[in-house]
Design a protein around this nucleic acid. Structure first.
Lengths: 226, 226
DNA sequence: CGAACAATTGAATCCTTTCAAAGGGAGTGG
DNA sequence: CCACTCCCTTTGAAAGGATTCAATTGTTCG
């Protein structure tokens, strides 16, 4: 098991020279730790989560290649763990500029992306039924995968904690989607989308982009002209 | 009705000289509009939401005094509307620095806060039952209010769209909490918390701070020592 | 090959939604 | 000032889903 101290600045430059290698199910940093650096995924999958007092776990996001996480300035607000074997690039959160230390360059854009990711996560929950959420999740994953096939690298339990469902319901629903010929399963993780449109309908709306053109207009639309 | 164009830079300085006044249920900006400025709440309550294709509305957050919203750089990712009569301070998103335009100072810290707010929103959804969510919501609102009493300035429908429940369930649950003597209602909006501990238990966990000290330790804890 | 773990599936229960109707404030007009 | 209306909220009963409990199947790894 490879371990690392998330805030150990001593051997860290603005960009770590060589990627960090961690194996499946390893801790990266823990909620509450002082935040010394943020990470970019080179390969593999990372999850961030919060452990609640009642024992529940809440998975806030999955991070794939080129995603960044751990951008907090003070303390980390969530725990980060590897889902698969992972290669990470590490950056220090603050760099010396003259006399003061300020957020490192590039972090700003990453923060922007991370925020959008958080919004997507909220968006997933906005879907009412289990079928809605699972279908939306599969579509979201497929956007990060090349070609038609995609791999559900995380466990059913991970998916459940991400969608706020039980792993039973997730399993049932995936089976149901396969039964309806919207997807095809090859083994546990390998999924092939058979009917994208059908999946979007199953997701309860026309996926991303569709929540932009709202048929039910918000208040005050169209805008009053000068 | 006071109207404004969110991206009208012409009359906007780095910080608008006088606060903007808007009345209840007014649009501030719309999802998809190019983002020209971000806002600070001086007084009142603002909501941000996304309108989904299927007609559902999803309330991503409520903003109170000193909260900032609308920090997107490209286009606004969500719609902002007033919940009550509101006073706003407006800032331009980018300012001229030499030849290039870059994010305005102060925006960084605000982005940090906004992100934390988004996380809280996700956190609310992490609660399983209606009682969990409503109790957690009331506790969250109470943290933004002084003293024991608090005002639910938004409608039941707003709360429902925020917690991903129906307004019926929200209403039922609030009544139930009152019946259990955890809160007391004075009129529709005025709430007094009678039993904070009981509310926290009803929320399903010991509220904020408790999700930091996790009794069910995440993987790899405690940290291996060097 | 067997053990341990992950995933699937079934049945009963509980909870939220849905459909329907009644109650209560705020504002308007008589 | 009162009555009336409109809209928000509350509440009831039935229906649909997700969870829970329990058991089986399937995979992976030693």
């Amino acid at each position: 098991l490879i371990t690392l101290y998330p805030c150990d600045d001593s051997d860290v430059r603005v960009t770590a020279p060589s990627p960090l290698r961690l194996e499946k199910d390893s801790p990266i940093y823990h909620e509450g730790d002082p935040a010394g650096c943020w990470y970019e995924v080179v390969s593999g999958v990372v999850r961030t989560c919060r452990y609640l007092a009642n024992g529940q776990r809440h998975l806030t996001a999955f991070y794939y290649a080129d995603d960044a996480f751990g951008l907090d300035l003070g303390c980390y607000q969530e725990t980060a763990e590897t889902v698969t074997d992972v290669l990470l690039r590490r950056h220090t959160t603050r760099v010396n500029v003259g006399t003061e230390r300020r957020p490192s360059p590039g972090r700003d854009d990453m923060l922007e992306k991370a925020w959008e990711k958080a919004r997507q996560s909220i968006f997933l929950f906005g879907h009412k039924t289990a079928a809605n959420r699972v279908a939306a999740f599969i579509l979201a994953v497929s956007e990060r995968s090349e070609a038609a096939g995609l791999e559900l690298l995380m466990s059913r339990s991970d998916i459940a904690d991400h969608l706020n469902l039980t792993l039973h319901t997730v399993s049932r629903t995936i089976s149901e989607l396969a039964r309806r010929k919207l997807i095809a399963l090859h083994g546990r993780q390998s999924v092939r989308i058979l009917d994208v449109e059908g999946l979007r309908i199953a997701a309860g709306d026309a996926d991303r982009g569709a929540d932009r053109l709202s048929p039910s207009a918000p208040i005050g639309c169209p805008w009053p002209t000068a």
